[in-house]
Write a protein that binds this DNA or RNA. Sequence first.
DNA 1: CGCCAGATTGAAATCATTCAACCCCTGTGG
DNA 2: CCACAGGGGTTGAATGATTTCAATCTGGCG
Lengths: 255, 255
Amino acid sequence: MADVLAEHSGDTVPAGRSDRGEAMRHTQDVFRSSSEREEQLIKEATQRSIRLAPYRPLISEGEVGSELFYIERGWAYCFRTGAGGCRQILDFIMPGEIVGLQAALLGVTDHSVHSLTSLRATVLDRRLVGEAFRTAPELALRFARHLATEARRAGELLTVLGCGDAVERMAFLMIMLYQRQAEREPEISPLACPFPLRRRHMADALGMTGAHIHRTLNRLREDGVALVEDHRLVIRDLPRLAALAGVASSDAPPA
Amino acid sequence: MADVLAEHSGDTVPAGRSDRGEAMRHTQDVFRSSSEREEQLIKEATQRSIRLAPYRPLISEGEVGSELFYIERGWAYCFRTGAGGCRQILDFIMPGEIVGLQAALLGVTDHSVHSLTSLRATVLDRRLVGEAFRTAPELALRFARHLATEARRAGELLTVLGCGDAVERMAFLMIMLYQRQAEREPEISPLACPFPLRRRHMADALGMTGAHIHRTLNRLREDGVALVEDHRLVIRDLPRLAALAGVASSDAPPA
DNA sequence: CGCCAGATTGAAATCATTCAACCCCTGTGG
DNA sequence: CCACAGGGGTTGAATGATTTCAATCTGGCG
Protein backbone atom coordinates (compact mmCIF):
# COMPACT_ATOMS: atom_id res chain seq x y z
CA MET A 1 0.00 0.00 0.00
CA ALA A 2 3.03 2.21 0.48
CA ASP A 3 2.98 2.38 -3.28
CA VAL A 4 -0.49 3.74 -3.54
CA LEU A 5 0.05 6.38 -0.97
CA ALA A 6 3.43 7.34 -2.25
CA GLU A 7 2.01 7.83 -5.68
CA HIS A 8 -0.57 10.27 -4.47
CA SER A 9 1.52 12.13 -1.95
CA GLY A 10 4.50 12.09 -4.27
CA ASP A 11 7.12 11.77 -1.57
CA THR A 12 10.59 10.38 -2.11
CA VAL A 13 9.61 7.99 -4.87
CA PRO A 14 11.45 8.63 -8.13
CA ALA A 15 9.08 8.54 -11.05
CA GLY A 16 9.22 5.53 -13.31
CA ARG A 17 11.23 3.10 -11.25
CA SER A 18 11.15 0.01 -13.36
CA ASP A 19 11.15 -2.74 -10.76
CA ARG A 20 7.66 -1.68 -9.78
CA GLY A 21 6.46 -0.42 -13.11
CA GLU A 22 3.52 -2.79 -13.04
CA ALA A 23 2.40 -1.27 -9.74
CA MET A 24 1.51 1.90 -11.59
CA ARG A 25 -2.19 2.61 -11.40
CA HIS A 26 -4.38 1.48 -14.27
CA THR A 27 -7.92 2.21 -15.23
CA GLN A 28 -9.22 -0.83 -13.41
CA ASP A 29 -7.15 -0.43 -10.30
CA VAL A 30 -9.41 -0.55 -7.29
CA PHE A 31 -7.24 1.97 -5.48
CA ARG A 32 -6.94 4.27 -8.44
CA SER A 33 -7.42 7.98 -7.72
CA SER A 34 -8.15 8.47 -4.07
CA SER A 35 -9.70 11.32 -2.21
CA GLU A 36 -7.99 12.40 0.96
CA ARG A 37 -10.45 10.44 3.03
CA GLU A 38 -9.78 7.32 1.00
CA GLU A 39 -6.05 7.70 1.39
CA GLN A 40 -6.44 7.96 5.11
CA LEU A 41 -8.66 4.90 5.27
CA ILE A 42 -6.32 2.87 3.14
CA LYS A 43 -3.31 3.94 5.13
CA GLU A 44 -5.02 2.99 8.37
CA ALA A 45 -6.05 -0.39 7.04
CA THR A 46 -2.64 -1.25 5.64
CA GLN A 47 -1.00 -3.90 7.77
CA ARG A 48 2.01 -5.34 6.02
CA SER A 49 3.44 -6.47 2.74
CA ILE A 50 4.05 -10.06 1.78
CA ARG A 51 5.87 -11.98 -0.92
CA LEU A 52 4.97 -15.42 -2.12
CA ALA A 53 6.69 -17.99 -4.30
CA PRO A 54 4.60 -19.51 -7.14
CA TYR A 55 1.89 -22.03 -6.29
CA ARG A 56 1.66 -21.06 -2.62
CA PRO A 57 -1.54 -20.52 -0.66
CA LEU A 58 -2.67 -16.97 0.00
CA ILE A 59 -6.14 -17.76 1.34
CA SER A 60 -7.48 -21.17 2.25
CA GLU A 61 -11.08 -22.20 1.89
CA GLY A 62 -12.99 -21.97 5.14
CA GLU A 63 -10.70 -19.48 6.81
CA VAL A 64 -12.58 -17.26 9.21
CA GLY A 65 -10.94 -13.92 9.91
CA SER A 66 -9.47 -13.57 6.48
CA GLU A 67 -7.88 -10.36 5.40
CA LEU A 68 -7.98 -8.32 2.26
CA PHE A 69 -5.09 -8.50 -0.20
CA TYR A 70 -4.09 -5.93 -2.73
CA ILE A 71 -2.00 -7.55 -5.45
CA GLU A 72 1.04 -5.46 -6.28
CA ARG A 73 2.88 -7.78 -8.60
CA GLY A 74 2.33 -11.25 -10.05
CA TRP A 75 -0.75 -13.34 -10.70
CA ALA A 76 -2.93 -15.45 -8.47
CA TYR A 77 -5.95 -17.65 -9.03
CA CYS A 78 -8.88 -18.60 -6.88
CA PHE A 79 -10.53 -21.98 -6.90
CA ARG A 80 -12.97 -24.24 -5.14
CA THR A 81 -12.52 -27.92 -4.53
CA GLY A 82 -15.57 -29.86 -5.60
CA ALA A 83 -16.72 -33.32 -4.78
CA GLY A 84 -14.00 -35.92 -5.36
CA GLY A 85 -11.21 -33.46 -4.64
CA CYS A 86 -11.50 -31.99 -8.10
CA ARG A 87 -10.42 -28.40 -8.33
CA GLN A 88 -12.23 -25.70 -10.26
CA ILE A 89 -10.42 -22.45 -10.92
CA LEU A 90 -12.94 -19.62 -10.74
CA ASP A 91 -10.83 -16.68 -11.79
CA PHE A 92 -7.34 -15.37 -12.24
CA ILE A 93 -6.19 -12.31 -10.38
CA MET A 94 -3.85 -9.70 -11.76
CA PRO A 95 -1.89 -6.80 -10.30
CA GLY A 96 -4.01 -3.88 -9.13
CA GLU A 97 -6.86 -6.12 -8.06
CA ILE A 98 -8.24 -6.89 -4.63
CA VAL A 99 -8.66 -10.37 -3.18
CA GLY A 100 -11.04 -11.21 -0.38
CA LEU A 101 -13.87 -8.76 -1.00
CA GLN A 102 -16.42 -11.55 -1.03
CA ALA A 103 -15.12 -12.91 2.25
CA ALA A 104 -15.10 -9.45 3.80
CA LEU A 105 -18.72 -8.89 2.82
CA LEU A 106 -20.09 -12.34 3.63
CA GLY A 107 -17.89 -13.29 6.55
CA VAL A 108 -16.76 -16.63 5.20
CA THR A 109 -14.40 -17.66 2.47
CA ASP A 110 -15.71 -20.43 0.28
CA HIS A 111 -12.78 -20.54 -2.08
CA SER A 112 -9.01 -20.68 -1.84
CA VAL A 113 -6.50 -18.37 -3.49
CA HIS A 114 -3.01 -19.43 -4.53
CA SER A 115 -0.21 -17.55 -6.20
CA LEU A 116 0.35 -18.47 -9.82
CA THR A 117 3.62 -16.62 -10.23
CA SER A 118 5.82 -15.13 -7.58
CA LEU A 119 3.72 -12.50 -5.95
CA ARG A 120 3.89 -9.32 -3.94
CA ALA A 121 0.80 -8.20 -2.08
CA THR A 122 -0.29 -5.80 0.60
CA VAL A 123 -2.38 -7.02 3.48
CA LEU A 124 -5.28 -4.85 4.57
CA ASP A 125 -7.65 -5.03 7.47
CA ARG A 126 -10.90 -6.32 6.14
CA ARG A 127 -12.81 -3.70 8.09
CA LEU A 128 -11.68 -1.32 5.38
CA VAL A 129 -14.67 -2.51 3.39
CA GLY A 130 -17.26 -1.56 5.97
CA GLU A 131 -15.49 1.72 6.62
CA ALA A 132 -15.48 2.52 2.93
CA PHE A 133 -19.22 2.01 2.73
CA ARG A 134 -19.77 4.29 5.70
CA THR A 135 -17.37 7.09 4.88
CA ALA A 136 -15.87 6.75 1.40
CA PRO A 137 -18.65 6.08 -1.08
CA GLU A 138 -16.43 6.37 -4.12
CA LEU A 139 -14.17 3.64 -2.84
CA ALA A 140 -17.15 1.50 -1.89
CA LEU A 141 -18.50 1.94 -5.38
CA ARG A 142 -15.22 0.76 -6.86
CA PHE A 143 -15.34 -2.25 -4.58
CA ALA A 144 -18.83 -3.00 -5.83
CA ARG A 145 -17.82 -2.55 -9.44
CA HIS A 146 -14.93 -4.90 -8.90
CA LEU A 147 -17.34 -7.48 -7.52
CA ALA A 148 -19.64 -6.96 -10.47
CA THR A 149 -16.77 -7.36 -12.91
CA GLU A 150 -15.73 -10.61 -11.31
CA ALA A 151 -19.33 -11.79 -11.42
CA ARG A 152 -19.52 -11.01 -15.11
CA ARG A 153 -16.37 -12.97 -15.80
CA ALA A 154 -17.78 -15.86 -13.82
CA GLY A 155 -20.85 -15.71 -16.04
CA GLU A 156 -18.72 -15.80 -19.15
CA LEU A 157 -16.74 -18.77 -17.90
CA LEU A 158 -19.95 -20.51 -16.88
CA THR A 159 -21.32 -20.02 -20.36
CA VAL A 160 -18.30 -21.43 -22.10
CA LEU A 161 -18.16 -24.38 -19.68
CA GLY A 162 -21.81 -25.14 -20.16
CA CYS A 163 -22.00 -24.56 -23.89
CA GLY A 164 -18.57 -24.80 -25.43
CA ASP A 165 -16.41 -27.69 -26.55
CA ALA A 166 -12.73 -27.99 -25.75
CA VAL A 167 -11.56 -25.64 -28.49
CA GLU A 168 -14.05 -22.94 -27.57
CA ARG A 169 -13.11 -23.17 -23.92
CA MET A 170 -9.44 -22.81 -24.61
CA ALA A 171 -10.06 -19.93 -27.00
CA PHE A 172 -12.05 -18.20 -24.31
CA LEU A 173 -9.32 -18.56 -21.75
CA MET A 174 -6.75 -17.19 -24.16
CA ILE A 175 -8.83 -14.20 -25.20
CA MET A 176 -9.87 -13.41 -21.66
CA LEU A 177 -6.34 -13.38 -20.28
CA TYR A 178 -4.99 -11.56 -23.30
CA GLN A 179 -7.60 -8.81 -23.11
CA ARG A 180 -7.16 -8.31 -19.42
CA GLN A 181 -3.45 -7.83 -19.89
CA ALA A 182 -3.92 -5.60 -22.90
CA GLU A 183 -6.24 -3.36 -20.89
CA ARG A 184 -3.70 -3.05 -18.13
CA GLU A 185 -0.76 -2.40 -20.40
CA PRO A 186 -2.04 -1.04 -23.69
CA GLU A 187 1.46 -0.27 -24.95
CA ILE A 188 2.70 -3.84 -25.31
CA SER A 189 0.29 -5.92 -27.32
CA PRO A 190 1.63 -7.28 -30.57
CA LEU A 191 -0.77 -10.19 -30.09
CA ALA A 192 1.41 -11.88 -27.54
CA CYS A 193 1.51 -11.82 -23.77
CA PRO A 194 2.73 -13.70 -20.73
CA PHE A 195 0.77 -16.83 -20.04
CA PRO A 196 2.11 -18.36 -16.85
CA LEU A 197 -0.36 -21.24 -16.63
CA ARG A 198 0.64 -24.87 -16.44
CA ARG A 199 -1.45 -27.53 -18.14
CA ARG A 200 -3.01 -28.22 -14.82
CA HIS A 201 -4.27 -24.68 -14.39
CA MET A 202 -5.83 -24.60 -17.82
CA ALA A 203 -7.39 -27.98 -17.15
CA ASP A 204 -8.80 -26.92 -13.79
CA ALA A 205 -10.12 -23.65 -15.15
CA LEU A 206 -11.81 -25.21 -18.17
CA GLY A 207 -13.10 -28.44 -16.67
CA MET A 208 -10.88 -30.66 -18.80
CA THR A 209 -7.99 -33.02 -18.25
CA GLY A 210 -4.39 -32.08 -18.83
CA ALA A 211 -4.12 -34.56 -21.67
CA HIS A 212 -7.03 -33.05 -23.50
CA ILE A 213 -5.73 -29.55 -22.91
CA HIS A 214 -2.68 -30.61 -24.80
CA ARG A 215 -4.60 -32.05 -27.72
CA THR A 216 -6.65 -28.87 -27.86
CA LEU A 217 -3.56 -26.68 -27.88
CA ASN A 218 -2.21 -28.83 -30.70
CA ARG A 219 -5.33 -28.26 -32.72
CA LEU A 220 -5.26 -24.49 -32.22
CA ARG A 221 -1.61 -24.36 -33.18
CA GLU A 222 -2.05 -26.54 -36.27
CA ASP A 223 -4.99 -24.44 -37.38
CA GLY A 224 -2.86 -21.32 -37.08
CA VAL A 225 -5.11 -19.70 -34.48
CA ALA A 226 -2.89 -19.38 -31.43
CA LEU A 227 -0.19 -21.17 -29.52
CA VAL A 228 1.41 -21.27 -26.11
CA GLU A 229 5.15 -21.42 -26.09
CA ASP A 230 7.54 -21.04 -23.23
CA HIS A 231 4.79 -19.64 -21.02
CA ARG A 232 3.80 -17.02 -23.51
CA LEU A 233 0.61 -16.83 -25.53
CA VAL A 234 0.98 -15.95 -29.19
CA ILE A 235 -2.19 -15.12 -31.10
CA ARG A 236 -1.90 -15.73 -34.82
CA ASP A 237 -5.51 -15.05 -35.84
CA LEU A 238 -7.34 -12.85 -33.39
CA PRO A 239 -10.69 -12.68 -35.22
CA ARG A 240 -10.87 -16.45 -35.48
CA LEU A 241 -9.85 -16.89 -31.86
CA ALA A 242 -12.46 -14.38 -30.74
CA ALA A 243 -15.13 -16.04 -32.86
CA LEU A 244 -14.33 -19.39 -31.31
CA ALA A 245 -14.55 -17.88 -27.84
CA GLY A 246 -17.91 -16.33 -28.71
CA VAL A 247 -16.61 -12.85 -28.01
CA ALA A 248 -17.18 -9.85 -30.23
CA SER A 249 -13.73 -8.86 -31.50
CA SER A 250 -14.20 -5.33 -32.80
CA ASP A 251 -14.81 -6.97 -36.15
CA ALA A 252 -17.15 -9.02 -38.29
CA PRO A 253 -20.25 -10.31 -36.51
CA PRO A 254 -20.13 -13.98 -35.50
CA ALA A 255 -21.84 -15.66 -38.46
CA MET B 1 -42.44 -0.98 -4.39
CA ALA B 2 -45.75 0.18 -3.03
CA ASP B 3 -45.55 -3.00 -1.00
CA VAL B 4 -42.26 -2.19 0.60
CA LEU B 5 -43.28 1.29 1.54
CA ALA B 6 -46.70 0.29 2.72
CA GLU B 7 -45.16 -2.30 4.93
CA HIS B 8 -42.99 0.23 6.64
CA SER B 9 -45.39 3.13 6.76
CA GLY B 10 -48.26 0.81 7.55
CA ASP B 11 -50.90 2.80 5.70
CA THR B 12 -54.13 1.32 4.45
CA VAL B 13 -52.71 -2.15 4.00
CA PRO B 14 -54.35 -4.75 6.21
CA ALA B 15 -51.76 -6.89 7.94
CA GLY B 16 -51.32 -10.43 6.68
CA ARG B 17 -53.14 -10.26 3.40
CA SER B 18 -52.52 -13.61 1.89
CA ASP B 19 -52.23 -12.78 -1.80
CA ARG B 20 -49.01 -11.03 -1.09
CA GLY B 21 -47.79 -13.13 1.76
CA GLU B 22 -44.61 -13.92 -0.10
CA ALA B 23 -43.84 -10.24 -0.33
CA MET B 24 -43.22 -10.24 3.41
CA ARG B 25 -39.65 -9.37 4.17
CA HIS B 26 -37.22 -12.20 4.69
CA THR B 27 -33.73 -12.31 6.03
CA GLN B 28 -32.21 -12.01 2.59
CA ASP B 29 -34.52 -9.36 1.26
CA VAL B 30 -32.49 -6.53 -0.16
CA PHE B 31 -35.07 -4.02 1.00
CA ARG B 32 -35.43 -5.52 4.43
CA SER B 33 -35.50 -3.03 7.32
CA SER B 34 -35.07 0.44 5.99
CA SER B 35 -34.02 3.63 7.65
CA GLU B 36 -36.06 6.70 6.90
CA ARG B 37 -33.52 7.84 4.36
CA GLU B 38 -33.67 4.50 2.60
CA GLU B 39 -37.43 4.57 2.45
CA GLN B 40 -37.32 7.96 0.88
CA LEU B 41 -34.76 6.90 -1.70
CA ILE B 42 -36.69 3.81 -2.58
CA LYS B 43 -39.94 5.69 -2.88
CA GLU B 44 -38.33 8.24 -5.17
CA ALA B 45 -36.81 5.56 -7.36
CA THR B 46 -40.00 3.54 -7.67
CA GLN B 47 -41.45 3.90 -11.13
CA ARG B 48 -44.15 1.32 -11.71
CA SER B 49 -45.19 -2.23 -11.16
CA ILE B 50 -45.30 -4.89 -13.84
CA ARG B 51 -46.67 -8.37 -14.28
CA LEU B 52 -45.30 -10.97 -16.61
CA ALA B 53 -46.54 -14.31 -17.87
CA PRO B 54 -44.11 -17.25 -17.64
CA TYR B 55 -41.15 -17.42 -20.03
CA ARG B 56 -41.31 -13.77 -21.02
CA PRO B 57 -38.35 -11.41 -21.28
CA LEU B 58 -37.68 -8.97 -18.46
CA ILE B 59 -34.25 -7.80 -19.56
CA SER B 60 -32.57 -8.51 -22.86
CA GLU B 61 -28.87 -8.90 -23.34
CA GLY B 62 -27.23 -5.75 -24.63
CA GLU B 63 -29.91 -3.36 -23.45
CA VAL B 64 -28.49 0.01 -22.61
CA GLY B 65 -30.54 2.03 -20.16
CA SER B 66 -31.79 -0.94 -18.25
CA GLU B 67 -33.69 -0.49 -15.05
CA LEU B 68 -33.64 -2.22 -11.71
CA PHE B 69 -36.31 -4.76 -10.86
CA TYR B 70 -37.45 -5.80 -7.44
CA ILE B 71 -39.14 -9.22 -7.65
CA GLU B 72 -42.33 -9.29 -5.62
CA ARG B 73 -43.70 -12.63 -6.63
CA GLY B 74 -42.65 -15.51 -8.87
CA TRP B 75 -39.29 -16.72 -10.15
CA ALA B 76 -37.04 -15.54 -12.93
CA TYR B 77 -33.76 -16.73 -14.34
CA CYS B 78 -30.88 -15.01 -16.01
CA PHE B 79 -28.85 -16.47 -18.83
CA ARG B 80 -26.27 -15.75 -21.48
CA THR B 81 -26.31 -17.05 -25.00
CA GLY B 82 -22.99 -18.55 -25.93
CA ALA B 83 -21.48 -19.40 -29.26
CA GLY B 84 -23.82 -21.46 -31.42
CA GLY B 85 -26.93 -19.98 -29.84
CA CYS B 86 -26.61 -22.26 -26.83
CA ARG B 87 -28.09 -20.84 -23.69
CA GLN B 88 -26.47 -20.97 -20.26
CA ILE B 89 -28.61 -20.20 -17.25
CA LEU B 90 -26.47 -18.37 -14.71
CA ASP B 91 -28.84 -18.10 -11.79
CA PHE B 92 -32.43 -18.27 -10.67
CA ILE B 93 -34.05 -15.30 -9.03
CA MET B 94 -36.60 -15.51 -6.25
CA PRO B 95 -38.99 -13.07 -4.60
CA GLY B 96 -37.34 -10.40 -2.51
CA GLU B 97 -34.31 -10.21 -4.78
CA ILE B 98 -33.08 -7.47 -7.05
CA VAL B 99 -32.34 -7.83 -10.75
CA GLY B 100 -30.09 -5.54 -12.70
CA LEU B 101 -27.53 -4.57 -10.08
CA GLN B 102 -24.68 -5.65 -12.30
CA ALA B 103 -26.02 -3.62 -15.18
CA ALA B 104 -26.56 -0.59 -12.96
CA LEU B 105 -22.97 -0.75 -11.73
CA LEU B 106 -21.26 -1.55 -15.01
CA GLY B 107 -23.52 0.26 -17.45
CA VAL B 108 -24.13 -2.66 -19.76
CA THR B 109 -26.16 -5.80 -19.47
CA ASP B 110 -24.38 -8.88 -20.69
CA HIS B 111 -27.11 -11.33 -19.83
CA SER B 112 -30.85 -11.62 -20.31
CA VAL B 113 -33.50 -12.23 -17.67
CA HIS B 114 -36.76 -14.06 -18.32
CA SER B 115 -39.64 -14.93 -16.06
CA LEU B 116 -39.82 -18.58 -15.10
CA THR B 117 -43.28 -18.41 -13.54
CA SER B 118 -45.81 -15.65 -13.70
CA LEU B 119 -44.17 -12.72 -12.09
CA ARG B 120 -44.85 -9.46 -10.34
CA ALA B 121 -42.05 -6.95 -10.09
CA THR B 122 -41.44 -3.32 -9.26
CA VAL B 123 -39.41 -1.18 -11.59
CA LEU B 124 -36.88 1.16 -10.04
CA ASP B 125 -34.71 3.87 -11.47
CA ARG B 126 -31.23 2.46 -11.69
CA ARG B 127 -29.80 5.63 -10.27
CA LEU B 128 -31.01 4.32 -6.94
CA VAL B 129 -27.78 2.37 -6.78
CA GLY B 130 -25.52 5.38 -7.05
CA GLU B 131 -27.71 7.31 -4.64
CA ALA B 132 -27.56 4.51 -2.13
CA PHE B 133 -23.78 4.53 -2.20
CA ARG B 134 -23.72 8.26 -1.66
CA THR B 135 -26.37 8.63 1.01
CA ALA B 136 -27.60 5.27 2.33
CA PRO B 137 -24.58 3.13 3.16
CA GLU B 138 -26.61 0.37 4.77
CA LEU B 139 -28.61 -0.11 1.61
CA ALA B 140 -25.46 0.04 -0.51
CA LEU B 141 -23.93 -2.61 1.70
CA ARG B 142 -26.94 -4.86 1.17
CA PHE B 143 -26.61 -4.34 -2.56
CA ALA B 144 -22.97 -5.36 -2.33
CA ARG B 145 -23.79 -8.39 -0.23
CA HIS B 146 -26.39 -9.41 -2.74
CA LEU B 147 -23.80 -9.17 -5.48
CA ALA B 148 -21.38 -11.21 -3.40
CA THR B 149 -24.00 -13.86 -2.75
CA GLU B 150 -24.74 -14.17 -6.43
CA ALA B 151 -21.04 -14.41 -7.15
CA ARG B 152 -20.70 -17.20 -4.63
CA ARG B 153 -23.53 -19.13 -6.22
CA ALA B 154 -21.92 -18.65 -9.60
CA GLY B 155 -18.75 -20.14 -8.16
CA GLU B 156 -20.63 -23.13 -6.85
CA LEU B 157 -22.31 -23.72 -10.18
CA LEU B 158 -19.01 -23.30 -11.96
CA THR B 159 -17.47 -25.92 -9.72
CA VAL B 160 -20.17 -28.46 -10.29
CA LEU B 161 -20.13 -27.81 -14.05
CA GLY B 162 -16.39 -28.17 -14.23
CA CYS B 163 -16.01 -31.10 -11.85
CA GLY B 164 -19.29 -32.95 -11.54
CA ASP B 165 -20.98 -35.59 -13.63
CA ALA B 166 -24.65 -35.48 -14.55
CA VAL B 167 -25.89 -36.84 -11.24
CA GLU B 168 -23.83 -34.43 -9.18
CA ARG B 169 -24.97 -31.50 -11.26
CA MET B 170 -28.61 -32.37 -10.86
CA ALA B 171 -28.17 -32.97 -7.15
CA PHE B 172 -26.58 -29.57 -6.83
CA LEU B 173 -29.43 -27.84 -8.61
CA MET B 174 -31.98 -29.55 -6.41
CA ILE B 175 -30.21 -28.77 -3.15
CA MET B 176 -29.52 -25.21 -4.15
CA LEU B 177 -33.10 -24.40 -5.06
CA TYR B 178 -34.46 -26.28 -2.09
CA GLN B 179 -32.22 -24.49 0.38
CA ARG B 180 -32.96 -21.08 -1.04
CA GLN B 181 -36.65 -21.68 -0.66
CA ALA B 182 -36.27 -23.17 2.81
CA GLU B 183 -34.38 -20.07 3.92
CA ARG B 184 -37.11 -17.82 2.65
CA GLU B 185 -39.97 -19.83 4.11
CA PRO B 186 -38.66 -21.88 6.99
CA GLU B 187 -42.13 -23.04 7.98
CA ILE B 188 -42.89 -25.21 4.96
CA SER B 189 -40.13 -27.70 4.35
CA PRO B 190 -41.07 -31.34 4.75
CA LEU B 191 -38.37 -32.02 2.14
CA ALA B 192 -40.51 -30.88 -0.73
CA CYS B 193 -40.86 -27.59 -2.53
CA PRO B 194 -42.03 -25.99 -5.75
CA PHE B 195 -39.76 -26.67 -8.69
CA PRO B 196 -41.13 -24.79 -11.68
CA LEU B 197 -38.34 -25.71 -14.09
CA ARG B 198 -38.89 -27.45 -17.39
CA ARG B 199 -36.37 -29.96 -18.71
CA ARG B 200 -34.95 -27.26 -20.84
CA HIS B 201 -34.19 -25.00 -17.89
CA MET B 202 -32.43 -27.76 -16.02
CA ALA B 203 -30.53 -28.63 -19.18
CA ASP B 204 -29.48 -25.04 -19.82
CA ALA B 205 -28.48 -24.49 -16.21
CA LEU B 206 -26.40 -27.65 -15.95
CA GLY B 207 -24.83 -27.75 -19.40
CA MET B 208 -26.59 -30.96 -20.42
CA THR B 209 -29.19 -31.97 -22.96
CA GLY B 210 -32.85 -32.42 -22.09
CA ALA B 211 -32.61 -36.10 -22.89
CA HIS B 212 -29.82 -36.62 -20.45
CA ILE B 213 -31.59 -34.57 -17.81
CA HIS B 214 -34.35 -37.08 -18.04
CA ARG B 215 -32.08 -40.08 -17.70
CA THR B 216 -30.43 -38.44 -14.73
CA LEU B 217 -33.76 -37.76 -13.02
CA ASN B 218 -34.66 -41.41 -13.61
CA ARG B 219 -31.49 -42.51 -11.88
CA LEU B 220 -32.05 -40.25 -8.88
CA ARG B 221 -35.62 -41.45 -8.56
CA GLU B 222 -34.72 -45.15 -8.90
CA ASP B 223 -31.99 -44.72 -6.32
CA GLY B 224 -34.48 -43.22 -3.90
CA VAL B 225 -32.63 -39.92 -3.62
CA ALA B 226 -35.08 -37.38 -4.99
CA LEU B 227 -37.66 -36.90 -7.69
CA VAL B 228 -39.45 -34.17 -9.57
CA GLU B 229 -43.13 -34.66 -10.00
CA ASP B 230 -45.75 -32.26 -11.25
CA HIS B 231 -43.33 -29.35 -10.94
CA ARG B 232 -42.51 -30.14 -7.33
CA LEU B 233 -39.24 -31.42 -5.96
CA VAL B 234 -39.47 -34.22 -3.40
CA ILE B 235 -36.31 -35.11 -1.52
CA ARG B 236 -36.27 -38.67 -0.25
CA ASP B 237 -32.72 -38.81 1.10
CA LEU B 238 -31.34 -35.40 1.94
CA PRO B 239 -27.92 -36.52 3.24
CA ARG B 240 -27.26 -38.53 0.11
CA LEU B 241 -28.46 -35.74 -2.14
CA ALA B 242 -26.25 -33.25 -0.31
CA ALA B 243 -23.27 -35.59 -0.50
CA LEU B 244 -23.76 -35.94 -4.25
CA ALA B 245 -23.94 -32.20 -4.62
CA GLY B 246 -20.72 -31.79 -2.64
CA VAL B 247 -22.47 -29.66 -0.04
CA ALA B 248 -22.16 -30.06 3.69
CA SER B 249 -25.65 -31.06 4.89
CA SER B 250 -25.67 -30.27 8.59
CA ASP B 251 -24.54 -33.85 9.00
CA ALA B 252 -21.75 -36.35 8.58
CA PRO B 253 -18.63 -34.99 6.84
CA PRO B 254 -18.24 -36.05 3.20
CA ALA B 255 -16.06 -39.15 3.46
C1' DC C 1 -60.81 -34.54 -33.15
C1' DG C 2 -56.45 -33.00 -34.48
C1' DC C 3 -52.51 -30.54 -33.42
C1' DC C 4 -48.40 -29.21 -31.15
C1' DA C 5 -44.94 -28.69 -27.71
C1' DG C 6 -42.76 -30.97 -24.42
C1' DA C 7 -41.49 -35.37 -22.34
C1' DT C 8 -39.66 -40.08 -22.86
C1' DT C 9 -36.86 -43.57 -24.67
C1' DG C 10 -33.54 -46.37 -27.68
C1' DA C 11 -29.47 -46.80 -30.78
C1' DA C 12 -25.59 -44.82 -32.96
C1' DA C 13 -22.07 -41.42 -32.98
C1' DT C 14 -18.95 -38.18 -30.71
C1' DC C 15 -16.23 -36.14 -27.52
C1' DA C 16 -13.48 -36.36 -23.59
C1' DT C 17 -11.36 -39.26 -20.03
C1' DT C 18 -8.50 -42.75 -18.42
C1' DC C 19 -4.51 -45.21 -18.38
C1' DA C 20 -0.16 -46.35 -19.67
C1' DA C 21 3.94 -45.42 -21.97
C1' DC C 22 7.52 -42.42 -23.30
C1' DC C 23 10.15 -38.10 -23.42
C1' DC C 24 12.53 -34.19 -21.76
C1' DC C 25 14.45 -31.42 -18.47
C1' DT C 26 16.27 -30.52 -13.99
C1' DG C 27 18.22 -31.40 -9.67
C1' DT C 28 20.87 -34.62 -6.79
C1' DG C 29 24.09 -37.80 -5.13
C1' DG C 30 27.76 -40.90 -6.10
C1' DC D 1 31.01 -36.73 -15.03
C1' DC D 2 27.54 -39.83 -14.88
C1' DA D 3 23.49 -42.35 -13.11
C1' DC D 4 19.27 -41.78 -11.36
C1' DA D 5 14.82 -40.10 -9.79
C1' DG D 6 10.92 -37.14 -10.28
C1' DG D 7 7.72 -33.91 -12.23
C1' DG D 8 5.64 -32.17 -16.09
C1' DG D 9 4.64 -32.57 -20.74
C1' DT D 10 3.31 -35.53 -24.91
C1' DT D 11 1.02 -39.15 -27.14
C1' DG D 12 -1.77 -43.46 -28.43
C1' DA D 13 -5.42 -46.80 -27.59
C1' DA D 14 -9.26 -48.27 -24.99
C1' DT D 15 -13.12 -46.92 -22.28
C1' DG D 16 -16.97 -44.33 -20.90
C1' DA D 17 -20.15 -40.52 -20.49
C1' DT D 18 -22.99 -37.54 -23.02
C1' DT D 19 -24.99 -36.04 -27.26
C1' DT D 20 -27.46 -36.62 -31.36
C1' DC D 21 -31.13 -38.22 -33.86
C1' DA D 22 -35.26 -40.33 -34.51
C1' DA D 23 -39.35 -42.40 -32.95
C1' DT D 24 -43.09 -42.62 -29.75
C1' DC D 25 -45.94 -40.94 -26.15
C1' DT D 26 -48.54 -37.54 -23.46
C1' DG D 27 -51.40 -33.73 -22.20
C1' DG D 28 -53.40 -29.25 -23.11
C1' DC D 29 -56.04 -26.60 -26.23
C1' DG D 30 -58.40 -24.77 -30.36
